[in-house]
Amino acid sequence: MSKVYLGLGTNLGDKEQNLRIAVQKIEEQIGKVISLSAFYVTAPWGFTSDNSFLNAALCVDTALSPLEVLQKTQGIECDLGRIHKSVNGTYSDRVIDIDLLLYDDLVLSAQSPSGAELNLPHPLMAKRDFVMRPLAEIAPDLIHPVLRKTMKKILSDL
């Protein structure tokens, strides 16, 4: 079994319900959720919106490969009504966003059969307070496989 850390975000509709449904679907389709952060209200990042975000992080034990986890998370996003993915750094409001942050201590760059890019660890995670705050809550002493710093240290450096 592998430990996978996911970042969740939503800024449309019933945000708390969106996160709870996403967590339930992750447990049904990916594996046992072993930790879940509090839900954090955050400002949009990378674009302007009147809608604040609700963000969380979780850890799941899975037997799936990284590309299988990516496929499942994208399916969950679609099931919850997410139509458009961010393209070339152009972000927009969304019902749900599920980012694959870490998969054990794997460093990987791959492309799924659908053409989606998977980069592990997530290349922007250490620059995003809305990712690091919930992640540091559930895994403060986890070491980033590239930066060689704990999640707690990365958060304090932001």
Rank of each mutant, 00 (worst) to 15 (best):
L80C: 02
A126L: 11
L36D: 09
H84V: 09
L67V: 06
S112H: 02
P121K: 01
M132H: 11
G46D: 07
K127R: 14
S112A: 12
I30R: 00
H84W: 03
D14N: 12
R133A: 15
F39T: 10
L12Q: 05
G46P: 05
I143P: 03
T10R: 01
A56Q: 05
L106T: 15
Y91L: 10
Q74N: 13
I34D: 14
D129A: 15
N88M: 11
K15T: 06
D14E: 11
P121W: 00
Q29Y: 12
P66N: 10
L100M: 09
Q71A: 13
E137N: 10
N119Q: 12
Y91D: 08
S52M: 13
V69I: 08
L142H: 15
N51P: 08
A110S: 05
A63H: 14
I143S: 09
T62Q: 09
D14M: 03
S92V: 01
V41M: 10
K72M: 11
K72W: 01
S49K: 06
L101K: 00
K25L: 15
P140E: 06
L70W: 00
K32V: 14
G75W: 02
P145E: 06
V131T: 09
S92Y: 05
A136F: 12
A38N: 15
A56G: 08
Q29K: 12
I138M: 09
V107H: 03
V146D: 02
R20L: 13
N51R: 11
D14S: 04
S114I: 01
N119F: 05
E27A: 14
R94C: 07
I26V: 15
V69M: 04
D61H: 07
R148C: 09
R128W: 03
L106M: 13
D93H: 05
G81Q: 01
Y91K: 04
E117Y: 01
G81L: 00
A139W: 03
I138A: 13
F47Q: 07
G31T: 03
I26D: 04
N88T: 11
I21K: 03
I34P: 12
L108F: 06
W45P: 00
V87S: 04
D93W: 05
L120M: 02
P113S: 07
S35D: 14
C78F: 06
S65C: 09
